[in-house]
Amino acid sequence: MRKKWTPFRITALSLVSALAAAGALTGAASPASADTSAVRVEYTCTTSAGPGAQMTVWVVGGLPNDGAGSNSAPGNQYFYIDVDLDMRELRPVLTLAEGVRLDGDSTARLGARIVGPDGTRTTEAAFTFAPKWLQTTQGTAVRAAGAFPAQVLSVPGGYDVRVDDLALTLRPKRADGTPLGTITASCTHDPAQNDLLGTVLVQGLIAERPPRPDGLTVVSTTPTSVTLTWQGYPWWNKIGGYDVYLDGDGGHTGFVTENQVTLTGLTPDTQHRAKVVTVDVQGIRSKMSKGLIFTLPRA
């Protein structure tokens, strides 16, 4: 008979204090964030533009730090895995007679398997492309940002996140914005290749924190600014405000007391990922919100 798993409950502030005392953290100000993991995958693609092609893709993922330690998540609580694509060799897929531009209407989908002690489940991440002008695609980095749907894992243990097939829908344009049609590609990789993006450790631990913000939305944009809003939720302590992050944990843009912020001084025609963390009056922090990917207009 299988032993029933009873999770250990602890407040996030106590968890941070314990980890700091053990040398695992440098201070209570560290956000519930994500560690970056990456894997290089060689894909063989069948395209609508002609014969098959080979393509190199770096898959870069942000694994959760929602539990106790790196790449961890409490059991029975949802978490997010951000993922970016860095395509260094699009030339065989996107045959160019002239320079072209790719925008956010070019998309990709990446399959993945999550393999752990309770078996294997499949999931799929959706991406939008960052704006890019291409005069040659050989050796030029083309990037797209996305995320897997929220994951909830129950049985404690290590869960390997392994990438699978990749599908591209490319809509190149001329410099003046004139569409050049749609090119699709269906890409597979040799199963003998390394396809391990990273391992998430699911723990029998419930870190009680303020609820994470939800409903992060773009209100308006200019070529150099964006206004964001989101939904915050009450909990035991009074909410003090929100930390806002742009393009990773190192992109802390400031602390606000309302559930809205305007970020200025940004670069036109760029893609970004924003996240928000709730902070209560005692300094207890929520997990990071789901990332919101947006693109600023051209100047």
Rank of each mutant, 00 (worst) to 15 (best):
F148G: 03
R212E: 15
A38S: 14
A299I: 13
A207I: 07
P191M: 09
I239H: 04
D195W: 03
R109Q: 15
T270Y: 12
P179T: 11
A112E: 13
S225I: 00
R212W: 13
G67M: 04
G146I: 06
R2L: 12
Y245F: 15
G52V: 10
D243N: 14
V219C: 05
D105N: 08
K275Y: 12
T267W: 02
T217M: 14
T6F: 06
T95A: 09
T184D: 07
V57W: 00
G119S: 06
R113Y: 12
D103T: 15
S106V: 06
V277P: 00
P210F: 08
Q77E: 14
L153G: 01
T123V: 13
V115I: 14
A192I: 06
A12M: 07
G139W: 08
A274S: 05
L94S: 00
A32K: 08
L266Q: 01
T122I: 07
L96Q: 09
G52A: 15
Y78G: 14
V100G: 06
D165H: 13
G251C: 04
L168I: 02
A18Q: 13
S154P: 05
I183K: 08
E42R: 14
P213R: 05
A53Y: 13
L166W: 00
M55C: 08
K238I: 11
T120A: 01
Q151G: 02
L63V: 06
L25T: 11
L166T: 01
A24M: 14
T227L: 00
T257N: 04
D118L: 05
V152S: 11
T36M: 12
R9S: 13
T26L: 12
T11Y: 03
A68N: 01
G204I: 02
E42H: 10
G232R: 09
G198N: 07
S186Y: 09
P211V: 06
L180W: 02
F127I: 01
Y43F: 06
V218M: 01
P7S: 12
D66P: 01
A18E: 11
K4S: 10
N71K: 13
P172D: 02
N76S: 15
P64F: 13
T95D: 06
D105P: 09
D249E: 15
W5A: 15
L266R: 05
D247E: 10
